[in-house]
Design a protein around this nucleic acid. Structure first.
Lengths: 134, 134
DNA sequence: CCGAATCCGGTACGATACTG
DNA sequence: CAGTATCGTACCGGATTCGG
């Protein structure tokens, strides 16, 4: 790979359009509904959030998906997980600087969605009312 | 926060953190790996793109998911689908102004991913090498 | 009690074959 | 070329169980 770097820069490992490149695996974590909501929630909140605190905020998420999402974020270095060995157990989550950075972009998607709800709902209604082409 | 909720207009229908609100259904379309890649590809390309042109660009996507993603984008008014009644058939896809707008945010996520691949891969390696807590 | 692991049923996805 | 149909599979949601 590096041998021909000076002739033709090989960026295949970061080209998201290519299958099985690392950038795709990063996108798999970011381009995900729960990731966006979890990161946005952590970002909005002042200070760390506990597990059930997040769970209550993100109506409809299951414990399993919340755990899974938080693990993936921790693994990618976007969130930090702090466990207090108390009874009852206490686990706090915060965004890392990297997570805050990504959260800014994810939050923009969320705000865009909320802002354009009316016109998108209108477009859907028009599309669904369209006559069956059969 | 909730103490003044009754004084403020009810925006629960656009609060993405609430289950079954329209904003969530918009996020379901946007916060999706294939949507991001399709919109980014359409955005980068100069002029409309044909079905198989997109398919070749997005290595690894199946016909089914590409069709499904394009349909969802069309339904939401983010992409436009133009069919030419020729033989063989020719179908061209373009982003609507709304799609271009969303595409700017989605593309930012893609670029962020590509840019931070090294540190995220490093974080994953460290996480996976971590001793089993059992 | 809080947070996570496990088992099970349904849905969404991938691969292949087929049609206009 | 641009889809649709079908089927096996992997993932998600729900409930239960476990562990501290």
């Amino acid at each position: 790979m590096d041998t021909v770097r000076h002739l033709q820069p090989d960026k295949s490992w970061v080209d998201s359009y290519l299958e099985d490149c690392p950038a795709r695996t990063v996108l798999d974590v970011l381009a995900n509904k729960w990731t966006l909501l979890v990161v946005s929630a952590l970002r909005q909140h002042d200070g760390p959030m506990r597990f059930n605190e997040l769970r209550r905020r993100l109506t409809g998420i299951t414990q399993k998906m919340l755990t899974q999402t938080l693990r993936a974020l921790e693994r990618d270095g976007l969130a930090a997980r702090k466990v207090y060995p108390t009874v009852p157990p206490r686990v706090e989550y915060t965004l890392t600087p990297l997570g805050v950075d990504a959260g800014q972009l994810l939050n923009a998607i969320g705000e865009w969605s909320e802002h354009h709800v009316p016109e998108i709902l209108g477009s859907r209604a028009a599309f669904d009312a369209r006559p069956d082409p059969s």
